[in-house]
Structures are given as C-alpha cells and as structure tokens.
C-alpha cells in the first residue's frame, strides 16, 4: 500500500466527511430540537447545488453564488417551515415522513422543469482551480482544500452559536423540554423557524460549495439525504458533535471503501453501512446519543 496515496485518500475522506457534516448537522438539529424527520433535507442540498449553477453563471463567480445563495436558502427555509413544517410539530413520524417525502417529489419536479435532467457542472473559481503538489507525481486539489477549510470554519461557527450564545442555549433547552422553554417566555415557534432556517442554509451551503467539485444531476439530493441519515444515526440523533464525528467516519469509510474494496463487487459502497451496523451494535443510540 502506498502511504502517500493513503494519506491523499484520507484527506479526501475528511473533506467528504466535512461536507457531509454540513448536511447532517442540519438534519440532526431539526430532528433533535423540533422533533421533525425532514426527508426533504437533501432537496435543500440539491437546490443549493443548482443555485450555484445559475448564480455562478449570473454573477460570474462562485463567491457571488454563495453570497446570494445563502439569503435565498434562509428565505426558502423560513417559507417551507411556515407553510409545511409548522404543521408537523405535534404529528407522528409517519405523517412527517409522508409530507416531507411529498416535498422531495415537488422539489425534484421543479428542478427538472427549471434546470432540466441533463448533468451539469459548475466551474471552479480560477484562483482555486489548480492543485497543490504533494510529491513529484501526486497532487491535491486546491478546491478540495478550500472546501475543507470552509466546512471547518462553518463547523466552528456552529459550535460557537450552539455553545456560546443565548440562541444556542435556547436551542439546546428546546431540544430537551420545549414546554419549559415556552414557560420561560420564549417563542418556540420563532425559535423553531430560526433552527429550520439554519439547518436549510447549512445544507444549501454544502450544495453550493460542493457543486464545482461534483457534477449536478437529478437525484443528488436523495443520495446526500440517505448518507446523512446514516451519519445522524451513527452520531446519535440530535447530537451535533455526533454528527461531526459520524460524518468524518462515514467520509473516511466511503472513500476507503471505494479505494480499497473495489475488487469486491458491491462491498465498496457497503463499507458505510457496515460501519453503521457496527456502531449501532456497540451503541444502539449512536456515539453521542442520549440513552
């Protein structure tokens, strides 16, 4: 086994995991705090990616797409929460799954109408298009390094918001006992709307910045959704820390699986699920889940 290649795969796994974290953290806080299983979460990743396509064309730069895409995602999140999700708070999980699955169908149809079913790609910003040489023969994509840095910065900001601000305190308190939060004079409807918008914008951001590194095609939202659920379950439902560790583990398992198990047909993509099964056998509520 080539050590340098292994290190590059590791970097890829971490980068893949960090991006997954942005999606999974939104999924896990929406479930943990609001009690809503949001199957449409992957759709916000897809929307982010396609927004990156249009907004990069329109503004001429990916950075423009990020600057415009995030406010759009926040507004979209607030609108979806007020129109649909708000009706799900006191419903059982089956109803949540049905409604949010319906949203997936709608978003996919809209994607097909607006952007068509052909694959697309989004150009990388020129300054990040190159690669960083690692050895004489191997190099690593500058853009992927940039992705990792952005994800780490966002993860750090999320940590600060959750652990160092009153909003974060209220979010954590709401995850535990929303009735008590209301009894203290906090409008949990507004709190939940903010949480949902944060979750949506994290996911949309992941979609926007991932777009230049991956191709865009119908169904990318669902792919990300499924793997994010695996991350959330491994990390422990509702735990952002768990989502972080889970995402890195899954990112690595996925990349190592593709790289080293490709000789065993079918096993390459199964590495992720094997990891999930192993974690759940060991800790049924996930790594950082509440027992």
């Amino acid at each position: 086994m080539d050590v340098t290649l292994f290190l590059l795969q590791t970097l890829n796994g971490i980068q893949h995991g960090l991006l997954l974290f942005l999606v999974a953290s939104g999924l896990t806080i929406i479930f943990g705090i609001m009690g809503v299983i949001n199957l449409a979460h992957g759709s916000f990743y897809m929307i982010g990616a396609y927004l990156a396509l249009s907004l990069t064309q329109w503004t001429g730069s990916l950075f423009g797409a990020v600057l415009l895409g995030i406010p759009i995602a926040i507004l979209l999140g607030l609108a979806i929460e007020r129109l649909f999700i708000v009706h799900l708070y006191d419903r059982d999980h089956l109803q949540q799954v049905l409604l949010t699955f319906g949203l997936i169908l709608i978003f996919n149809e809209l994607q097909s109408i607006v952007w068509g079913d052909d694959p697309h790609s989004v150009p990388k910003p020129a300054m990040l298009a190159g690669s960083v040489p690692v050895t004489e023969t191997l190099s690593y994509s500058t853009y992927r390094l940039f992705l990792s840095v952005v994800c780490l910065v966002v993860a750090g900001c999320l940590y600060l918001v959750i652990h160092r601000t009153r909003l974060g305190m209220r979010m954590r308190a709401g995850a535990y006992n929303a009735e008590m939060v209301r009894s203290l004079g906090i409008d949990t409807r507004r709190l939940f709307a903010v949480v949902f918008a944060i979750g949506v914008s994290l996911t949309a951001l992941a979609g926007i910045i991932a777009a230049p590194d991956r191709s865009l095609y119908p169904g990318i939202g669902e792919q990300v959704l499924i793997i994010s659920f695996v991350v959330v379950v491994i990390g422990g439902i509702g735990s952002v820390k768990g989502a972080f560790v889970g995402a890195i583990l899954i990112g690595l398992a996925d990349v190592y699986g593709q790289a080293y198990l490709h000789d065993f047909r079918g096993f390459a993509s199964a590495a992720v699920y094997a990891l999930m099964a192993a974690v759940l056998l060991w800790r049924p509520t996930g790594l950082f889940g509440r027992r």
Binding site: R172, A173, A175, Y176, N177, E179, M180, R182, S183, L184, G185, I186, D187, T188, R189
Partner: peptide, 22 residues
Amino acid sequence: PTDRIATLGVAYVPENRGIFPN
C-alpha cells in the same frame, strides 16, 4: 400562548423543576 403569558410577567416553577440538564 404560554410564552406570551410568561412575557406578561408570570414565572413558573413546575413540580418536576424543569431544569435543562444539557
């Protein structure tokens, strides 16, 4: 709603205390 009642100036200490453990 409960939060509006609280902001009118009513504070509540429930039987089970309602401490946020986290």
